[in-house]
Simulated scan of single mutants.
Amino acid sequence: MPLSSVFHTASLRDQIAALGDEFAIEGNFLRHDVINSGHINMTFRAEYASHNGKVSRYIFQRINDAVFTRPRDVMHNVEKVTRHILWKMRRVIRPHEFQTLNLYAARGGRNYLELPGAGYWRCYNCIEHTHTYDVAETPQQAYEAAQAFGAFQELLCDMNPADIHETIPYFHHTRRRFDRLMEVARQNPKGRLESCARELEFVRAHESCVDVILDLLAQGEIPTRIVHNDTKINNVMLDEDTDLAVCVIDLDTVMPGSALYDFGDMVRTMTSPAAEDEEDLSKTFLRMPMFEAVTRGYLRSARGFITPKEADLLAFSGLLITLETGIRFLTDYLEGDVYFKTEREGHNLARARTQLKLVADMDARMEEMQACVRQIMHEHEQECPEGYEA
Rank of each mutant, 00 (worst) to 15 (best):
A274M: 03
V203H: 04
F291W: 02
P169H: 08
R287C: 02
M288N: 00
I249D: 07
N234Y: 05
E276C: 05
F23K: 01
Q140V: 02
D262M: 13
L19G: 06
A24K: 15
T325V: 12
I327K: 11
V67E: 06
D65G: 01
Q187F: 07
D243E: 14
Q15P: 08
E368D: 15
H347I: 01
L251P: 03
L103T: 09
F291Y: 07
P161L: 15
A49E: 08
T342R: 09
V359Y: 10
V236W: 06
F340K: 05
P169V: 09
S56P: 00
R180M: 03
R70E: 12
D211M: 15
A105V: 11
E183Q: 14
A49D: 00
T354Q: 05
H76T: 14
V203T: 05
V246P: 10
L244M: 08
L281K: 07
V78C: 10
L260N: 03
D332S: 11
T167D: 05
T342L: 11
H206R: 14
N348W: 02
L30Y: 00
L319N: 03
E379M: 12
Q147S: 00
M369C: 14
H51L: 14
Q15L: 08
E194I: 01
A390Q: 01
A275N: 15
F152G: 06
